[in-house]
Amino acid sequence: MTWHMDDGLATRYADGDLDATLASSVEAHLLACAPCRELLTPRVPRARLDRVWEEIAEAVDSPVPGPFERALRLVGVREHTARLLGAASSLRLSWISAGALALLFAVLAAGETTRWGLVGFLALAPMLPVAGVGVAYGRGADPAYEIGLAAPYPAVKVMLMRAAAVLATSALPALVIGLAVFGRSWAVAAWLLPALALTSLSLVLSRWFEPAHCALAVSALWLACVAGTNLGEPSLAMFGAAGQLASLAVTVVSCALLAARGKKAS
């Protein structure tokens, strides 16, 4: 480098008063010369630089939403709500797809065309949302749980919103698997009410116990019922009219209790 800019040249470059060829020289020089670049710093209004920096800081800091969160935004969920939902581990794409895969393999392993296969599917499908809800909130699952308890945003609301999201995201793959494996028949939807019953029951219990434990207990109870009605012969007793009615009753009572709790919290 044999020459450097002086203040005059810097001002003229900054003001656009240099002819194209000379400006090109200056620019080529600038790429290699830090002191001359520095000469230009005072030629740009501080306020303008600060304004641009604020935008950069915002873009750089803003959390990058995961695929599930982006999907929520697409269907109209507001940004801050989507954030709260997306923070739950069972509302990540990895968990949702793992649950669906587990269900698929379990059904295929049971032999999809036999009645055992159908019973197995109907017994397992409701446990998917229960497990998801069990790890979606609470002290064990949510590291900021204790902080959240002292925050104005109602913890019950977070719990219910996440439970609803888990139900929706686990019902969809279960329905698809059911339709794909068993074809169109009433049976592929027979697990829906039991799923609602089990999930709402475990939500009610989580008032007193750790949500993951509630999910485990409710699931165990469910499996015991299904196994009890299936001794020897595969039977769909749990999913017949009586079973559905019982599920409905559990769901209604649980939801009433949850609603009462939600009202009290807000």
Binding site: A34, R37, E38, L40, R43, V44, L49, W53
Partner: peptide, 8 residues
């Protein structure tokens, strides 16, 4: 360091 000359 680099925003001013880049702006110009």
């Amino acid at each position: 360091r680099h925003a001013p000359w880049l702006v110009l």
